[in-house]
Amino acid sequence: MSRRAVIAAVDGSAESLAAAEWAAREACLRDLPLRLVHAWQDWSPAFAHVPYAGRDITPGGTTVTRHWAERVPREAADRLREGHPDLEVGVEQVLGRPAEVLLSAADTAEVLVMGSRGLGALGGFLAGSVSLPVIARAERPVVVVRGGERAGDERRSGTGDRVVGRGRNGDVVLGLDLSRPCDELIAYAFEAAAARSATLRVVHGWTAPAAFGYDPAAVDPGHRVAWGHRAASTLTDVLRPWRGTFPAVEIMEQCVVGQASDHLVDASKDASLLVVGRRMRRAATGTHIGPVTHAVLHHATAPVAVVPHL
């Protein structure tokens, strides 16, 4: 069986080119091939004239539309091969709706990487008509990289060329829900940290039960302290077997009071990668993206990996 590849969606935009560069570094870290996928739709009329080019567009758009579709991933691949001479880079153009093309590609991917436009601290990501449907339905991990990511945003360790992250410490940050911890999600985060020789910071946000607001005895701060200790103990228990599987990965456990999404967005400022989960749902309606993941996708500053799980 052939190896899975890291797949990057490219459309010629600065955001997709930043995602492709991130995907190339990820493929190098995982010793996997990189495949660039460009989904294109033929919007050309049956016959049109291009006066400045001095030629016509033939039916099917073979003169201009197809030429552009072939040029976008080819030029991106050339740049990546120049920067990563040992990386195996493949190119694929697929005629079809972008979301459907990328969902099909994701089935064979180790991870699918997409770009997203950053709108700053208040606006966050621009969640488009392609990225959210793909994230909501993909059954393989999807990484969203905001525009502006560059190779220099990740520093390298003192030994070799291993990427260890961006910002101050380059932690890999994992948002973990202790009510239903998932092996696929935890494994992805540990593998990402191990590949980067980075610290894995595991963040669990908790809030006191609503009943605390109605029970006079709950005013005692000791009750909340006890809840915090129990959450921290549970987190330690969940991570204990993973420490044995990944002994080289340094782990930082954080049980924090308040909305998990707020803490994860804050943690993303110094992270090389933020990892969150998405529970797979078969319902025909709804976004199929949980509120924490949705908030993180819109406001995190680091690349965000969304790992689907049951």
Rank of each mutant, 00 (worst) to 15 (best):
M1P: 14
A5D: 08
V6L: 06
A8L: 12
A9I: 08
G12V: 02
A14D: 15
A14T: 12
S16H: 01
S16N: 00
S16K: 03
L17P: 01
A19P: 07
W22Y: 09
E26P: 00
A27P: 04
C28N: 13
R30G: 10
R30S: 14
L32T: 04
R35N: 06
A39N: 08
W43M: 14
W43T: 13
A48Q: 09
H49K: 15
A53H: 05
D56A: 09
G60Q: 06
H67G: 14
E75V: 00
A76T: 07
R81G: 05
R81F: 00
D86R: 08
V89I: 11
V91G: 07
G96F: 12
R97S: 10
R97N: 12
P98H: 02
E100R: 12
V101I: 06
L103S: 05
A106M: 07
A106H: 07
A109D: 01
V111Q: 01
L112H: 01
V113W: 04
M114N: 00
G118V: 06
G120C: 09
L122T: 10
G123E: 04
G128Q: 07
V130G: 05
L132I: 12
I135N: 06
A136Q: 03
R137Q: 15
R140L: 04
R146F: 03
G147I: 12
G148P: 08
G148N: 04
G148V: 05
R150A: 09
G152D: 11
D153H: 13
D153M: 02
S157A: 15
T159A: 15
G160H: 08
D161E: 14
V163D: 05
G165K: 01
R168V: 12
N169W: 14
S179H: 10
S179R: 15
E184Y: 04
I186F: 00
I186K: 04
A187M: 11
A193I: 07
A194L: 13
L200G: 03
G205N: 02
G205Q: 00
G205P: 02
W206F: 10
F212A: 03
P216Y: 00
G222Q: 12
H223G: 11
R224P: 10
A226Y: 02
A226R: 11
R230F: 09
A232F: 08
A232M: 13
T234L: 14
L235H: 06
T236W: 04
L239A: 05
R240N: 09
P241F: 06
T245L: 11
T245F: 09
P247C: 13
V249T: 01
E253V: 01
V256D: 05
V256P: 07
V256M: 07
V257W: 12
G258P: 01
Q259D: 15
D262A: 14
H263L: 10
H263C: 02
V265P: 01
D266S: 14
A267F: 02
S268R: 05
D270A: 12
D270L: 11
S272W: 11
L273D: 01
L273I: 04
G277F: 07
M280T: 14
R281T: 12
A284D: 13
T285C: 04
I289N: 04
G290L: 00
H298T: 09
H299E: 03
A300E: 08
P303Y: 04
